[in-house]
Amino acid sequence: MGVCYSKLLKTTFNSSKYSYDVNWSPEWSPTPKTFPLLRLPFLALLEVFKSLDPIELFILSQCSRKAASSIHFVGSKKWKLSVDVREQSININDIYRVAITESSIKPTWIYDRRMKMLFVKYQKNENNKLELQKVLSQLQSAFRCPVTSFEYNGFWKSDQCWVSVLKCIVQNQVQPLESFVLTRSWKMEDLERALQNVKVSRQIRIRIHASSFLRLDLMMFKSCKCIELSFSWLTISDLDVFMEEWKAGNLPSLRYMLIRNDGFHWYWYDQILGFKRDEMKQLGARRKLVIDENLSVDECTGGVDIQADNGRKATIQMDRVSDSWFKLFVWNN
């Protein structure tokens, strides 16, 4: 009497995980150096994907729509993207990098495994502003993961490409950005429109140089842990209103804020939470604020201690020399 493995299997296991006799078909006629990847059983296919690094997975995703739609099986939660518009690059998990560069020859992709960097070279044409956006869409489509960080440092040249890239990000994900860093933009209406739509959970840093009369409503950043604004054109009165909101407990996430100005103009009646300028300039013990394991900010060197209605303790400090900055440090209880 022969013992049939498959029959025994059915009687031994009640698990529905295995369907041995239904689709088990490893028949395939090989040709040298080819391998039918998508004909592997699901778990094996997953193992192959797990062994590929993110750049290799991305290259694989470009083979066909079917291949692209399989990549996310590895697990979308494993991936996050960071976009740097000026550098024309996208980082994956802060380790792997896709750099988009112009080329005079035909478009090529070169992967430097040692540097963990993929060079996407495209031919210069009128649509080259869209190249970063295109590659970002391809990455998001393959990995089905969010962009967590957006950075544009257009200090030396003005390029409105960042607006369309940011728009693309905001439209494609509900998850807020963790970090948003913007340095200089000539078109203020673009900036204001962008900031109306973008949501940031962790860190926002905006440095607008030579732009006129940018008085952003600070409350639009109320979900951030860390706010840094330079050349803000905000007034002491604006800061007072904002600090009243903080005191009332309407900014529970905020841990640090730095507002720079060419020089805050103080009128004799100006105060912030009832404190005069000189009170906030006092020297004191040096304290460092650690916001989270990857984010700490410069040291608090004095100022005046305050407390919100919910008991949260903080320190506000004004630049002692030229009134050019105002800082808020919110301490851990």
Binding site: E47, C63, R113
Partner: peptide
């Protein structure tokens, strides 16, 4: 064994991968 299959992807372009892994086009 899956690592060995993954190693076949090293240094390949999408077009080369399509040939190696017998991936049909769209």
């Amino acid at each position: 064994s899956c690592k060995k299959v993954a190693n076949m992807a090293q240094g390949k372009t999408p077009a080369q991968l399509r040939r190696v892994y017998l991936l049909p086009s769209d």
